[in-house]
Amino acid sequence: MIQVKGVSKKFRDELVLHKIDLEVKDGEIVGLVGPNGAGKTTLLNIIARIWLPSEGEVYIDGANITQSKDISQVIGYVPETPFLYPKLTGREFLLFVGALYRLSNQNLKNKIYELERALEISFWMDQLMESFPRGVRQKMNLAAMLLHSPKILLLDEPTANLDPKSARLIKDLLKNLAEKGISILLSTHILEIAEKLSQRLIILDRGRVVAEGTIEDLRNLTKKPDYNLEEIFLQITGGKAYTELLKILS
């Protein structure tokens, strides 16, 4: 379970996250949506312990992440810009990450075999990573972060560069993982994915949580029972400006 309590983040004098509170329960998929620069990636980086919050605390399964160094043993984090060692093959990359998770050699090899089949990346396993298309890099990073069977998955735009087939594959995989009890927090621009995949949604705007709940909760909030997520999102994050823009463009 992820608990974020009053987290703020300042870069120089700019406040990019302002007192964020959120919770992701075991086996739950929570979608983090918001316009560009809303602070989604910053929040994921803080939960993954890559950045430290300027204020507030993050708990993973009840343990404060700033105090417990082993916390990354239970987290998997796939960033928007995938990690890439151009001169390593896909297999060497996975072996490198697996060894740092201290997985036993045989266990690691079995896990790699399972994942390369599940994510359909077998063809790329023995090619240098510099030759990977973006979608394959994304899948390779997801494979790396599933090696240690994490309890929590943080995904930043997981389907951004994928073809429709691969996007569907990832969606099914994530649903499957959630059923097994893994908590998933995913940030995305693609509202259709957020709507279909997430049990709960959090809308961030300019570093603040502006709305939170199931799609029904959000409809009630906007008092528009027939709205889809896209319409709700536009209304909450500046739909007025968007309507004006449409008028200008037409």
Binding site: N45, A48, R49, I50, K69, S72, F83, L84, L100, R102
Partner: peptide, 16 residues
């Protein structure tokens, strides 16, 4: 470069 975030994220990796 960007991969340093991976090193920072992985357990026990920074010291090693």
């Amino acid at each position: 470069t960007n991969n340093f975030r991976l090193i920072k994220f992985l357990p026990f990796a920074l010291k090693g």
